[in-house]
Structures are given as C-alpha cells and as structure tokens.
C-alpha cells in the first residue's frame, strides 16, 4: 500500500482508533494521543500492507495494543503486563526487546515461506488480518471445510518448524 493510498483511508482509520481508545480511557485527550500514536505505527508499516487486506481490522488491533501499553506506562507501580513481556505494542521498547522481536519475526517469515501458496495465503488471512472463517470463505470462494483443513495443516507445519528452531 502506498502512502497516498494510506492517506486516502487515514481519516476512516483514525475515527475507528479514536473510538476504541475513547472506550478504553473515557477521556478524549488520551484517546487523541493513542489514535495519533497508532496512526504513526500504521504509517511506518503501510508499505507492508496489502491493499486487499482488511486494514480496518489491523488498525483495530494496533489501537488496542497501544491502549494497553499506554495504560501500563501511566502506572509504573503495577506489574508489567503480559503483552509487554512479549514485546507487544510498546511505544518505546528496549534494544533487547527489539532484537528479540526481530528474531521472532524472521523465524516466522522463514517458516511461513515454506508453506504452500494457498496455505500461506489462508494462514496470513487468519493470523495477520484476523478474518473469521466466514470472511475467508467469502473472499476466496473456497468451501468452509476446505478452508478449515488448510488452515489446520498450515498451523501444524508452522508449529513443528518453530519447535525445531527453538531447540537449536
């Protein structure tokens, strides 16, 4: 997705993110800040986004992650959330977290690349875009049982490969 295409849908995405943040925080000021941070993260990632993908779904997930990270930043006395330990949605991650996240991302990309094209496509739809089975069926035209079987096969392959890499 180009930057101009992203700018075309930026207003719509921002309103969705603002609503999520407002539901979470209850105040407009904090919601505005969260929406802005989430838009910045999407902006940096927009070149990797396929225009056919469900960008709104991705924007919702990014906004939710930013809300959780922002809240924990405001209350440092609370124990760190689970998602921060995994390096999720951090607004200012440490170098170690960045390195770990990069290694994990590389491992996943290599494993997914070994899948069959159809399996990879369905796996990414399900995992990255967060589409339901019905939405995948509607988009691809494949029957639901077949979609389920292909996703299951892809997941089992990825799990086996990742376990091998983690043992190494």
């Amino acid at each position: 997705m180009t930057q101009s295409e992203f700018e075309h849908i930026a207003t719509q995405l921002r309103s969705v993110m603002l609503k999520i943040a407002r539901d979470f925080f209850g105040s407009l000021d904090e919601a505005e800040d969260i929406a802005q941070e989430a838009m910045v993260q999407l902006w940096h990632y927009c070149e990797h986004i396929d225009p056919k993908q469900n960008v709104t779904g991705l924007a919702v997930r990014v906004a939710k992650n930013c809300c959780v990270s922002w809240k924990r930043r405001q209350k440092p006395e609370d124990p760190p959330p689970i998602c921060e330990k995994a390096g999720v949605g951090l607004l200012s991650p440490s170098p170690h977290d960045i390195l770990e996240a990069k290694d994990a991302l590389n491992a996943m990309e290599e494993v997914i690349a070994r899948l069959k094209p159809r399996e990879r496509e369905l796996f990414e739809m399900r995992q990255l875009e967060g589409l339901t089975l019905d939405e995948i069926v509607e988009r691809t035209g494949i029957m639901k049982p077949s979609v389920k079987v292909m996703i299951s096969t892809a997941r089992k392959k990825v799990l086996t490969e990742l376990k091998k890499r983690l043992r190494q």
Partner: peptide, 19 residues
C-alpha cells in the same frame, strides 16, 4: 511448544487479549 504457539498467535493477538 508454548513459545512456538506464542509466535504463531502473534503479539497483536496477545495485546488484544489484554485489552
């Protein structure tokens, strides 16, 4: 196995779950 599952599920899923 659990770490592999965590990678498969992805960090965004975990953040959504916390939300």
């Amino acid at each position: 196995t659990l770490k592999a599952l965590r990678l498969m599920l992805g960090e965004l899923t975990l953040g959504e779950a916390s939300y």
